[in-house]
Nucleic acid binder design. Structure first.
Lengths: 131, 131
DNA sequence: ATTTTTGCAAAAGGTTTGCATTGAC
DNA sequence: GTCAATGCAAACCTTTTGCAAAAAT
């Protein structure tokens, strides 16, 4: 995973493996604190960056401007509550059907209002320059 | 539009009406400078906030963390170049088909790699409290 | 012993806030 | 004249960077 195995890096990874929703750096730090592993935010940002470079985790940006991270293998689309900002992971295949009311695996409902789809890739100009 | 009609606010709106892609606050300021209307960023943020409250414009967040704004009436999904960060507006209906290569209205191509779909709304707990 | 990982402080970048001034009506 | 809009400086928040100290191998 990492060049060297440390308490912090291994726990960050297992926290991400064991959660059922994307976590922000702040939330990761809180999770670490709960198991008595204090960590500096700089350290977490650096661990996150390595995991992203290895494509082990993916970055999610929501309208609050805060970034969240989840295992790439668990990558989902997301329902985001405008009120409490909770993030629920879903599979787009379960959404397309008509109703604006989505039933979550937990049995709870979610009223969909707006969406944002961003598709990332490479435009023709950048493809040409091969940068 | 606004409680009072000013040079800055009316021009911000017309810039957003005349562009074919979402603009950041920085880009809006640059657009204003080009027509010799210097404006403070605070002012632009406040104008943007009013337009969002009135739902005249919508906010788009991309992985760079920067927010972009576009007329709600022109709301699209977006292709975002990972290299140059250009944003191309598209209609999701034109995407779903098989190929990873999307042809833009301009005739140029875009190679799609990853996507992020965020659906905003209200979760059951917040719906209950009616907040 | 070497090299990576970590912590701290400071900086960076986008966004927001407080307050006094300017400008629209 | 009144109240909204603006500008400026400072604050805020998340994220990044530089450098020295600590830990892993």
């Amino acid at each position: 995973m990492f060049d060297r195995n440390t308490v912090i890096s291994s726990n960050v990874l297992s926290i991400l493996q064991n959660t059922n929703q994307p976590l922000s750096v702040k939330q990761i730090i809180e999770n670490l604190q709960e198991i008595s592993i204090p960590a500096n935010k700089t350290t977490i940002y650096r661990i996150i960056k390595k995991l992203i470079d290895k494509k082990q985790i993916s970055e999610i940006v929501i309208n609050s401007g805060i970034k969240y991270y989840e295992l790439t293998s668990k990558k989902h689309d997301h329902l985001i509550c405008n009120e409490c900002h909770a993030i629920f992971c879903i599979d787009v295949k379960n959404i397309l059907p008509a109703s604006k009311i989505k039933r979550l695996p937990s049995g709870k409902t979610f009223k969909m209002k707006t969406h944002q789809l961003n598709i990332y890739g490479v435009c023709e100009s950048c493809e040409d320059t091969g940068s």
